[in-house]
């Protein structure tokens, strides 16, 4: 187990490093920051001075070293637009995004797993068939368009849910949360459902497929032969074995929810970091772009790492075969 852990950790660190290289060279080599940062009316002397001040006269690998050592100290540059440290700006908006992603994750589990297992245990009933068709639709619907349509129906036509912002928030541990007030919850409702849609569909399909596969296994036949009730077979034996892939994918999906919140936040003007990154890409606010990308990479690698650990605990075959390589 420890060998597996260390190996996996080293891998995670390597991934972060590689992504840092890609992001840094991508942003600084393909796009030239000098053109954006420096006033075109500068004289040659001023120009050279500005380049020196920005550290751009150094060879690229040294620039990268400076970037890396600053990044390790939590300094990812200062936003051109806001004039504040990029990391601070993103950190301010992180809770809003996490709240949205958390709410969406909650919805996908409480709706997806039961629906999927039902469809898996009774594959030929019409309810199951509509669940499956619904999940195909959930996959196919473009998130942003569904969001717009939700605004049209619930905010413009019916006027029952607010279409933008977070509403009233309550401060807990110095962080603002929407889900603790009624007004905040009404604001959270549409974006959370919107963000959860694809995920609910995914969970339905996974748990349905898992259930169908597990139902055919010998140990289920054995349990049935032993005279266990269908209820116990489904809730204990099938559920446990179905959950392995669901847990992995859900863990990985947490990151993807955070990434996809970019879309939902833009549609519903939810003040999270996804909305910030889109605005920053459009105005070429590179420090924020770099900071966002690095932070998301770090987040993803951490999530993947944790999921792998959980997975190896659930399914010992993973770490056995992993150690053999």
């Amino acid at each position: 187990m420890w060998a597996y852990l260390t190996r996996r950790l080293a891998q995670a660190i390597a991934v972060v490093f590689v992504m840092a290289v890609i992001v840094f060279f991508g942003v600084n080599v393909i796009g030239n920051p000098v053109d954006i940062l420096i006033n075109p009316e500068f004289t040659e002397a001023e120009y050279q001075q500005a380049i020196r001040a920005l550290g751009l006269h150094l060879p690229l690998h040294e620039q990268f070293f400076v970037f890396l050592s600053n990044a390790l100290e939590g300094d990812l540059g200062i936003s051109f637009v806001w004039g504040e440290p990029a990391l601070k700006l993103i950190a301010q908006r992180l809770p809003a995004t996490l709240e949205l992603a958390g709410a969406a994750m909650f919805l996908s589990i409480v709706l997806g797993v039961p629906l999927g297992m039902y469809a898996g245990t009774k594959p030929h009933s019409w309810v199951s068939k509509s669940i499956v068709s619904g999940s195909i639709l959930g996959f196919s619907l473009p998130t942003f368009w569904v969001g717009i349509m939700m605004i049209m129906v619930f905010a413009v036509m019916l006027g029952i849910l607010p279409s933008t912002g977070r509403g009233d928030t309550v401060e807990v541990f110095g962080i603002e949360w929407s889900f603790l007030t009624w007004n905040g919850l009404t604001h959270l409702a549409m974006p959370a459902v919107n963000l959860a849609l694809t995920n609910i569909a995914l969970v339905i399909r996974l748990s349905r497929a898992g259930t169908r596969e597990v139902m055919l296994q010998d140990y289920i036949k054995f349990a049935r032969a032993k005279g266990l009730s269908q209820r116990r077979i489904t809730l204990v034996h099938v559920l446990k074995n179905t959950l392995i892939p669901v847990v992995t994918v859900l863990g990985l999906e947490l990151g993807s929810l955070i990434a996809f919140s970019v879309v939902t936040e833009t549609v519903f003007a939810w003040p999270g970091m996804g909305k910030l990154i889109i605005e920053s890409i459009q105005v070429l606010d590179r420090p924020i772009v770099v900071a966002y990308l690095m932070l998301t990479v770090l987040l993803f690698v951490t999530i993947n790492f944790l999921v792998d650990i959980v997975y190896s605990l659930l399914d010992p075959r993973v770490r056995v075969s992993g150690a053999g390589k």
């Binding site: 990151g255 990434a259 996809f260 970019v262 998301t296 993803f300 690698v301 993947n304």
Partner: peptide, 8 residues
């Protein structure tokens, strides 16, 4: 690459 979502 597949450990990162397409949109990211």
């Amino acid at each position: 690459q597949l450990s990162f979502p397409a949109i990211l």
